[in-house]
Write a protein that binds this DNA or RNA. Structure first.
Lengths: 204, 204
DNA sequence: CCGGCAATTCATCACTCGTTGAAATCGTCC
DNA sequence: GGACGATTTCAACGAGTGATGAATTGCCGG
């Protein structure tokens, strides 16, 4: 292919008119492609093509493919403290419900692709190998479970993780029809009691 | 690298003495590497190296990388009917326990790598994209749930899948330490009631 | 109006991938 | 024991990868 947006004539070099934000376009495209194809499967050329830009821009703006991945997927500007606080704010007996609902609504709106990218690439060798653990458990669930003050907080956090990650895989990665299309409330109703039991129930 | 087993001298061509089964060695190596690296990440050269054999043997015995994957991972000689029958044999009230235990013991012994390979490669673009669904749901859980005779069998099967797949991801793919090392009985005790509720409990 | 800086594209490099065909070697049957 | 077929390794190809450096262009301060 000769150009990027046009296959016949060569695209003009130099800055683009209209002050378009190439960096941001690359970040968006990267999240999409990483979510669809995983870290290895996402080629820089495919990402650049989706951003309608030359592949060399990845190196120009992020230094390397790994740098782009770090900024697009792992460097989530997330208010972790606020999230933990919101989860803990309310009846402990309904914490399970808040966790599922928060997870689903967050992923359904903005971060759906981010979770898929994180998980898909967590299964890849490459950067971000253990960031799923750091993110889900170390940063969120373990603090929450500790604050609740139950026994075996780490094992309980792990149990909650299995259920939440399982939902994420089925809904956002594998995209099993019936579950990917299911209503958030329906899933919350069905799953929340199971998670609640992992948090405050008898598991030993 | 010059040879395969020896970096200095060239390995002798022609059949190997002692009637070693190259095909089987390749299948075993393929299951391992596919499980570790996913479909794209597993290179034919890496698989062949683990089987201590030249990469061209993959094409000789299986035609292509995809053929090897199909036979090594997807073509599991599994007694599905027998599995379904064993699950249904016994108290319905303890079906959840049987499902988790069967899943864990099967994966811990032989098929651990197979599940990881199936899931990792299910997240890859490549062959075997929807075989996770066909295997877990269509072939196993949906028939079981239908035989039990509850309402919403498909949705219940989906819920069970989320929990089982989540355990599989955390234990065999992401390998979170605490859960990968956990005792089977401990996990069964903690998780079985949740799955049992998905099967026979109130979820709507 | 012009000089420099930043942004963008192009051409290309070295490397790895899956695949292929030929050469070499072993086992077996007559 | 000699020929033939099956098995194995080797060398190479074409495509695609991430990365790099030069060439080109627009924008902004003087």
């Amino acid at each position: 292919m000769v150009g990027v947006s046009n296959g016949l004539t060569q695209a003009r070099r130099g800055p683009r008119p209209g002050g378009v934000d190439t960096r941001a376009a690359l970040l968006d495209a990267a999240r999409e492609v990483f979510a669809e194809r995983g870290y290895q499967g996402a080629t820089m050329r495919a990402i650049a093509a989706r951003a309608d830009v030359d592949a060399a821009m990845v190196n120009h703006w992020f230094g390397s493919k790994e740098g782009l991945f770090a900024e697009a997927v792992m460097d989530i500007p997330f208010d972790l403290d606020g999230l933990v606080r919101r989860l803990l704010d309310g009846d402990v007996g309904r914490l399970g419900e808040r966790i599922v609902r928060t997870f689903l609504t967050n992923c359904d709106t903005a971060g759906g692709g981010v979770f898929a990218a994180l998980l898909r690439s967590g299964a890849d060798p490459g950067p971000g190998g253990h960031h799923l653990h750091d993110f889900v458990i170390t940063s969120i669930l373990a603090p929450v479970l500790r604050a609740v003050g139950v026994d075996q907080p780490d094992f309980r956090a792990m149990l909650v993780t299995t259920q939440v990650v399982g939902i994420g895989v089925v809904r956002y990665v594998a995209r099993f029809d019936q579950f990917a299309a299911a209503d958030v409330d329906r899933i919350v109703t069905a799953v929340a009691p199971a998670i609640q039991r992992y948090i405050t129930g008898d598991i030993a």
